[in-house]
């Protein structure tokens, strides 16, 4: 098949709406993986996803132990004090073995690779987050409309996480 029929992916527009570590990493790995393949990528941080780009918060994100069937533990146990911290610590150590960086370093990697990082204006207004609360590497604050405008062109895909 020719390339014209194949329609290769040219740009990934990711929307991160959650702040649990497993979701943040899924988003970052997809964005970084795109750049590694020569595909453009951008992330729109909205709702709880905003925590991943807030200086004071991004180092303290956790794995969800409650309401997460893949943890294979009773909900009550998952809710005990310290369980999230324990699960998070275990997950981080496994990821380090695979050379997956911590959140702050991952954000630096994404910026260095040319990924664009955007804050969601509405969510920032709602959570009273100021631009100065965000990491310095952020590319700006956008409305949904602005983000869609950036998605123009053949081969762009949008993904909500």
């Amino acid at each position: 098949m020719s390339n014209a029929e194949n329609k290769p992916v040219k740009k990934m527009m990711l929307i991160l709406s959650k702040a649990t570590l497993e979701n943040v990493y899924a988003c970052f790995i997809l964005a970084n993986g795109a750049r590694m393949e020569g595909i453009e990528s951008e992330i729109f941080f909205t709702f709880f996803g905003l925590e991943a780009i807030q200086k004071e918060k991004l180092k303290h994100l956790h794995v969800a132990t409650v309401g997460n069937p893949a943890m294979h533990m009773p909900t009550l146990l998952g809710g005990l004090p310290g369980m999230e911290a324990l699960a998070t610590k275990m997950m981080k150590s496994e990821m380090e073995k695979l050379d997956i960086p911590p959140v702050d370093e991952f954000l630096e990697m994404l910026t260095a690779s040319g990924s664009k990082l955007w804050g969601c204006k509405l969510a920032m207004d709602m959570f009273k987050v100021k631009e100065s609360d965000l990491i310095d590497d952020i590319d700006g604050v956008l409305t949904v409309g602005d983000f869609y405008e950036r998605a123009q062109g053949d081969g762009t895909h949008l993904l909500f996480i």
Binding site: N32, R35, M36, D99, E108, M109, A112, S113, G114
Partner: peptide
């Protein structure tokens, strides 16, 4: 096993220069 992260820490290029 080679990763972008390791190349970035190799002291030869940083990630931005690698790209």
């Amino acid at each position: 096993a080679i990763t972008i992260r390791k190349v970035g820490k190799s002291g030869i290029v940083n990630i931005k220069e690698f790209y």
